[in-house]
Design a protein around this nucleic acid. Structure first.
Lengths: 174, 174
DNA sequence: TATTGTTATACTCTATAACTATA
DNA sequence: TATAGTTATAGAGTATAACAATA
């Protein structure tokens, strides 16, 4: 539906591989640092950081999930894990009794603070070191456009081309 | 040890987030497509594709692992999985009896072929659609530099700053 | 009836350590 | 002794479906 004889040219291939590999290597390094410095997985760090940046250090479960892709159950799992360590609290919302408000605790903020310096050091050493200031600007611009586009584009049945699945699989998006 | 008062400016933050988010969204979409079209995980696809591009469709386990980051046991696991589906074969190497040669089968190539069109369609729709030709070139250039740098840079103890670990954890790289 | 969230459950993946066999 | 690979095992993470409660 996109092209009759689908193929990528060398430049596109290069961009794709470089994107996957660079982000993979970076994430790997960052995850290791987060684990060592604060015993946090990347997702847990993202959740804490998101809460830390929020107005009252709070977010509804649903809003949190929007930012971090997850399935609801996956978010519940992570929230439980963080709550056990007293890094967040969960309380029923006052306005809507159905929803749960997640709030970062002082201890949660402390862990964030403990983890940040090393986190930034990894980024500096691994991602920014080989790039010029203008490289970083350009990168930010291009990738932000790509990201925004992906966010807008619903993962519709991307290519139903002879998928040949066991005829029992649902085609649901996300 | 990289900077006294570590922090990132807005542009750097933007580049970092955009990189993580864009790659995450893209990988997610691609994984879904690979799963639906060929029941492959991303790693499995990478392994098959790597073998498909290799001279005789073969690689030693160790060489395969180099390209796809893994722990040896993780690669063994994936190789077993692929072998069960007859997408690869594993045979002891003739020159060095210790090593195992992994080879893609005709059926493995067939799965690759079945999966490719949709794979490319996802990339076109999600990653390349919002970018100009020169964007893609620039992206490829910058990210390739970043990736090469990360490959060269050993994940040395990135930030031993008050890591406060249980005093039993090793600091080993990778 | 739709939405918010949790639970139960099953599965995939990754990593560590111990082990075998060859160089 | 070092290297190649496997096995056993354990743990983290993710997703699906069924469910309860509120709107």
């Amino acid at each position: 539906m996109t092209s009759p004889r689908p193929s990528l040219d060398a430049t596109q291939l290069g961009a794709y591989f470089a994107l996957i590999e660079a982000s993979s290597l970076l994430k790997h390094a960052v995850e290791q640092q987060l684990r060592e410095a604060g015993d946090l997985s990347y997702v847990q760090f993202q959740l804490l950081a998101t809460l830390g940046d929020s107005p009252a250090g709070s977010q509804r479960m649903t809003d949190l999930a929007d930012g971090v892709v997850y399935s609801r159950s996956g978010l519940t799992y992570q929230a439980q894990t963080l709550e056990k360590r007293d890094l967040v609290t969960r309380t029923p919302s006052s306005d809507d009794e159905r929803s749960t408000t997640v709030t970062i605790t002082d201890e949660g903020r402390a862990v964030l603070a403990r983890v940040f310096p090393g986190h930034i050091a990894v980024l500096d050493d691994l991602l920014f070191a080989p790039l010029s200031r203008s490289d970083v600007e350009t990168l930010a611009d291009i990738l932000a456009r790509a990201r925004d586009h992906m966010r807008q584009t619903p993962p519709r049945s991307a290519a139903p081309r002879r998928s040949k699945k066991p005829a029992g699989t649902t085609d649901q998006a996300r």
